[in-house]
Amino acid sequence: MLKKNKIDIRSLSLEQLKEQLVANGEQGFRAKQIYEWLWQKSCTDFEQMSNLSKNLRDKLSQTYTINAVKIDKSQHSADKTIKSTFRLVDNHLIEGVLIPTPERMTACVSSQVGCSLTCKFCATGYMERKRNLHADEIYDQVVLIARQAEESYQQALSNIVYMGMGEPLLNYANVLRSIERITSPDGLNMASKRITVSTAGIAKMIKKLGDDQVKFNLALSLHAANDEKRNEIMPINEQNSLKALSEALKYYFAKTKNPVTYEYIVFHHFNDELSDAKELAKFCKHVPCKVNIIEYNPIAFADFQNAEGDKIEQFAEYLRSQGVITNVRRSRGKDIDAACGQLAVKEKEAQETVNT
């Protein structure tokens, strides 16, 4: 429940917090102590900030609020994937996933409540976009999933992918601020190279990533290297053609020197022919890149099917023959609707949210 007339303390920069404390008769260095509690120790209760006086803790709780995200429920897959439904302070629900493999522990986090892009193969695309997530709400997902990794598998979180609900580049400022808090030495201190932001392809924002010289990895959900086919499954392509995307990616690479990952779902009888692989290989020549071929995960709203196994292997082998680094990714968490493209708050849950 939202606390009226209280300031969300995590929306403030360190300098803003310091100014407010000093204006209220407190010593400026207290801001750094509070910031450490908020962003290094992930504290969500002023009372636990033990190196602050009781008087200051009381003042903080009267003036500020910490809008902590909470786990509403979690589901465990047979393959050890954990999907969590998170409840936000305004009672909206989002989903995030812990993906454990022998090599890494990956958190898949959401950036919006719902999505506005209507990609035809993605469950989230059939939801209405309610709002963008704040930076602290994205950060909280990482913290909560990291705790699940420690508690369930006694391993630290190693990677973060912004591949959950929503389009990260349509929530640009909050996504970048969340990454700044996650990677900062006075935050979670995670290496930027362990973070990947995935976009459906918004050319001007890809260029902005270049201008901001970001250090994290960029992935583009491509799924077709042909405008006609991509328009059919991803309406965003109508305003962001492959030509516009290729120009944006060249600009991005020139500014950052970061190679790009292309995500490509091979759909049965849609984009699984040799001609499709040739188009993709040609697109891969624009900037240094690799391709992740992703297994399609069926959803109730669409009748796409995954390509046959031998077709996927032939597709991958052709790309490799053209010098394209290609990985075939197997889906995880499919039995609990936690796999790529399956995240969507179910209708019953959404109704409960509205009625809360």
Results as ranks from 00 to 15, higher is better:
135 A>K: 06
136 D>T: 05
138 I>A: 10
139 Y>S: 04
140 D>P: 03
140 D>V: 03
141 Q>Y: 00
142 V>G: 10
143 V>Y: 04
145 I>V: 14
145 I>G: 01
146 A>E: 04
146 A>K: 13
148 Q>G: 00
153 Y>T: 09
157 L>H: 04
158 S>A: 07
160 I>M: 03
160 I>E: 02
161 V>M: 14
162 Y>G: 01
162 Y>S: 00
163 M>W: 00
164 G>F: 14
166 G>L: 02
167 E>Y: 12
167 E>F: 05
168 P>Q: 03
170 L>H: 12
170 L>P: 12
174 N>L: 06
175 V>D: 03
176 L>V: 13
177 R>W: 07
177 R>A: 11
177 R>I: 07
178 S>G: 09
181 R>H: 08
182 I>E: 01
182 I>A: 06
182 I>V: 10
183 T>K: 11
184 S>H: 12
184 S>F: 00
187 G>Y: 14
189 N>P: 11
189 N>Q: 15
190 M>R: 13
190 M>E: 14
191 A>F: 06
191 A>R: 15
192 S>Q: 13
193 K>F: 01
198 S>L: 10
199 T>E: 14
201 G>D: 02
202 I>E: 04
205 M>W: 08
206 I>L: 06
207 K>W: 02
207 K>C: 02
207 K>G: 00
212 D>P: 00
213 Q>S: 12
214 V>H: 13
216 F>I: 07
217 N>C: 02
217 N>P: 05
217 N>A: 06
218 L>S: 01
221 S>E: 07
221 S>P: 05
222 L>S: 15
222 L>H: 09
224 A>F: 05
225 A>P: 01
226 N>A: 05
226 N>C: 08
226 N>M: 03
228 E>C: 05
228 E>L: 13
229 K>M: 03
234 M>T: 09
234 M>Q: 04
235 P>R: 12
237 N>A: 00
238 E>S: 13
239 Q>I: 08
242 L>A: 02
244 A>Q: 08
244 A>D: 12
247 E>N: 13
